[in-house]
């Protein structure tokens, strides 16, 4: 095919009785930023580790450019693991030089790449310091440099924004956009949904090892249940209860955010609000990615309640991957 696409095709993985991934599929096109979101334990990290071949899938396939990934093609992927991994006692430049060469660069090219990326990510002054002597933020920058130093044609970043200060978040965002502009498929996971919403072309929401929603952010938001914001200062608490198809999703001062189910009548809501007193504000709003995410997760819980045999809902039931330990957040 040769279109530089990263495809995850029906990948499954189970650990004993625990299903970590259940025929998970998604694709990231060349020059596309793909946001991978889901609760802890939903399977994001396992999926990324399978892409990198650190974990072997029970079934399914990962392809790049139409061909299954091999050790050779994986050398051209830039990877940032969830559990940050660098030699603590090795100097920054030496470490990056070593990793660049393991990814296939010659010694001279590796040296130039190290100089360029340490400069670009603002750690050039720390090149000769041991990694363990750097602040966490700077270690994170070095980690990103390690993912970029061999000029990867695919980027897979697990939680690249966690633990970054706002300046570093800007640098990271800029670099990701730049890589996208260079035609690289970029996939990253994050819990910072506002960031995902702002940066990504497409988003995939994974739940219990399955892709439950996947598409452009706008499309997903348009498809979610509509929100209605009503500002009725004199309305008593619970004024909207009992309206057909309406769910109260939150209160913010005198404002109430309502979710309208299919067939709900927004005019009935307006009448109920006016009955309580003056109405200062009344407008429909599309759900944010965060709201959408919560909807999807909650809907999934209902499904579990309905007897679907899936494991790993919520925040902490299944450890992501076989790295049992800190959740990395």
């Amino acid at each position: 095919m040769g279109d530089g696409r990263l495809e995850v095709d029906a990948v499954s993985k189970r650990y004993g009785d625990v299903v970590a991934l259940d025929a998970l599929s998604f694709e990231v096109r060349a020059g596309e930023l793909f946001g991978f979101v889901g609760s802890n334990g939903a399977g994001k990290t396992t999926a990324m580790r399978i892409i990198l071949g650190v974990v072997t899938a029970d079934a399914g396939q990962v392809r790049y450019d139409g061909a299954p990934l091999t050790l050779r093609t994986r050398r051209r992927i830039g990877y940032m693991p969830e559990e940050r991994g660098l030699y603590p006692k090795m100097k920054v430049a030496e470490q990056l030089h070593y990793l660049a060469q393991l990814h296939g660069l010659g010694p001279a090219a590796a040296r130039r790449a190290v100089a360029r990326w340490t400069e670009r990510l603002g750690v050039a002054a720390r090149r000769d310091d041991e990694v363990q002597k750097l602040s966490l933020g700077n270690q994170q920058r070095v980690q990103l440099a390690a993912a970029l130093v061999h000029d990867p044609v695919v980027l897979v970043l697990d939680e690249p924004f966690s633990g970054l200060d706002p300046v570093a978040v800007d640098v990271m965002s800029e670099v990701l956009r730049e890589r996208r502009a260079a035609g690289v498929p970029v996939v990253f996971s994050s819990h910072q949904l506002d960031l995902v919403e702002r940066l990504c072309d497409r988003v995939g929401i994974v739940r219990a090892g399955r892709m439950v929603a996947c598409g452009p952010v706008d499309e997903l938001r348009a498809g979610g249940g509509g929100r209605l914001v009503v500002d009725a200062p004199d309305a008593p608490a619970g004024w909207a209860d009992g309206l057909a198809g309406v769910r109260v999703r939150g209160r913010d001062g005198s404002r109430t955010v309502l979710e309208l189910g299919p067939g709900a009548d927004d005019q009935a809501v307006l009448r109920a609000a006016l009955a309580s007193g003056p109405v200062r504000e009344f407008h429909p709003r599309r759900p944010s990615l965060g709201e959408l995410f919560r909807d999807v997760v909650r809907a999934g819980d209902d499904v579990v309640g309905a007897g679907d045999r899936v494991v790993g809902d919520g925040d902490d039931v299944v450890s992501d991957g076989d790295l049992v330990g800190a959740d990395g957040e």
């Binding site: 530089g4 130039r112 061999h150």
Partner: peptide
């Protein structure tokens, strides 16, 4: 493979 190269010369064996 598409080239996204911006100056990093890879080994001529290209990851091999």
């Amino acid at each position: 493979m598409p080239t996204v190269n911006e100056g990093a010369e890879r080994d001529e064996r290209d990851g091999e």
